[in-house]
Design a protein around this nucleic acid. Structure first.
Lengths: 153, 153
DNA sequence: CGTGAAATGATTCTGAT
DNA sequence: ATCAGAATCATTTCACG
């Protein structure tokens, strides 16, 4: 089940940093022609190594300058309660990421908003509507020191 | 300075979910032809609304199944210390995101690793080499409930 | 697995409204 | 701003080493 060789890995490293690189450019960089690069990319997509392609937008220019991190602990931890919580969170469009955690808290949310007032409103009218939340701790991002979708491998 | 109309917003919403949609497809969806869509995308790129295009890869298939969240508090908070910390963090390839926070902790890190042993090794040989770290709290992701790069606007 | 060339289709540009 | 068409360039397929 050794599916990827060094060439595949190089292609993935290039595409996760710039998905607009042409197969021709990638081929040149890897001293190949376009066809094998094309076929490899197709294979990497089909096998699921590449999940999808996205444009990364500027949050501030789109009027979502505030990033909040919420740490949530549930009151009850039955399976049903956890599933319900997850379903309800997925319906909140402000929530970009939600992880079920091991550690002192149960869930971890990353939220993008227009401002602090909107955060207050988000907590008041949306989060608080979700029952079973025990503890809610809020943090705000002062500065994005580093933020990439690429992973190191 | 009202630069974006509803058509621009629609284009951005499409591209942040699927950057491989062709201008032709987008044009059809918006009842336009390829040329204006093409020009708008170029303008959105040039003005900085679109930062870049990336491929989203499958972490597990690339042998980085463990996501850890670190909450770090510094011992000293002078400007120089903070800058130094940020510089050092940026050099750690395992760190995908790092935010300077307002709240009970100073920094917030998201880290992708091969396993728990590698996390131990990461803390032992890399994080602990950064002086000025006061408190370090670790959390591990049990389940990705929701994770997107798209924002709602 | 690779190459190179041919067919297809998308992008980019031009001229006009 | 938009459209329609033409030119250019990238993607995709295929015959072959």
């Amino acid at each position: 089940m050794e599916l990827l060789d060094e060439t595949d890995l190089k292609i993935l490293r290039i595409l996760q940093n710039d998905a607009k690189k042409t197969t021709k450019d990638i081929a040149k960089q890897l001293h190949l022609t376009a066809s094998p690069v094309y076929e490899r990319i197709r294979r990497l997509e089909k096998k699921g190594y590449i999940k999808h392609y996205v444009a990364i937008l500027d949050k501030k220019m789109l009027n979502r300058p505030v990033t909040a991190i919420c740490m949530v602990s549930l009151r009850y931890h039955n399976e049903g309660f956890i599933d319900t919580f997850e379903q309800q969170i997925k319906e909140l469009v402000e929530v970009q990421e939600c992880y079920h955690m091991a550690g002192k808290v149960d869930f971890f949310l990353k939220i993008h908003l227009e401002g602090l007032e909107e955060y207050h409103e988000f907590v008041r009218s949306k989060l608080s509507k979700i029952h079973n939340i025990g503890v809610l701790e809020s943090y705000f991002v002062l500065k994005e020191v580093h933020n990439t979708t690429a992973i190191d491998f």
